[in-house]
């Protein structure tokens, strides 16, 4: 993170899905207020709405994005803390050139590993982060990694199958 030399930072730089955004700090439209969460900035300021906010209390996991390789709760992270970070959201998983789905996304479609789908982006991001770090994670590791994700429809069984399918094929860290 850049040193601010005791001065207030006037701009925040975020790399979202490979695109660099320089956002001014302030209260005007298209600016980032010091109280804005990353979820707010992604959804409201940048219009990247694939990241969902279920509880806004850090308890449901639906707002999970990957920041510098780790899954984080974007509703509990202030945007000004993210200066210089690289962020991947659900929109950044498919191949940008061909539009081909990431293997985890494809596996979710193949297994219909969702019902209402609202928790799905967060679950897919957490699964991707897990398989990036542990490509052959076992079932218990998948369940542990997803234990902070709330799904009220009970798609859990199909989600675990979908993630394990990718883990077993070793495609997660594509």
């Amino acid at each position: 993170m850049k040193k601010t030399n005791g001065k207030e930072r006037t701009a925040v730089t975020l790399v979202v899905n490979g695109v660099t955004h320089e956002l001014n700090v302030g209260d005007q439209p298209y600016q980032v207020s010091p109280c804005h969460t990353l979820a707010q900035t992604l959804r409201e300021t940048l219009g990247v709405t694939g990241t969902k906010v279920g509880c806004d209390q850090g308890a449901c996991g639906s707002c999970t994005v990957i920041m510098d390789g780790r899954p984080i709760l974007s509703c509990m992270t202030l945007t000004i803390q993210c200066h210089g970070s690289e962020i991947t959201t659900i929109e950044g998983l498919a191949d940008p050139a061909s539009g081909k789905l990431h293997p985890i996304q494809q596996s979710f479609v193949d297994h219909s590993a969702f019902q209402c789908g609202f928790c799905t982006p967060g679950i897919i991001m957490a699964s991707k982060s897990l398989l990036d770090r542990h490509p052959s994670a076992d079932k218990q590791a998948v369940k542990e990694a997803l234990s902070g994700h709330y799904c009220r429809c009970i798609s859990h069984y199909q989600v675990v199958d979908a993630v394990m399918d990718v883990a077993e094929k070793g495609e997660g860290d594509r």
Partner: peptide
């Protein structure tokens, strides 16, 4: 596949 499956897994839904 669910007709809305790709939209759900890509965040476009």
């Amino acid at each position: 596949p669910r007709k809305d499956g790709v939209a759900i897994v890509t965040g476009k839904a």
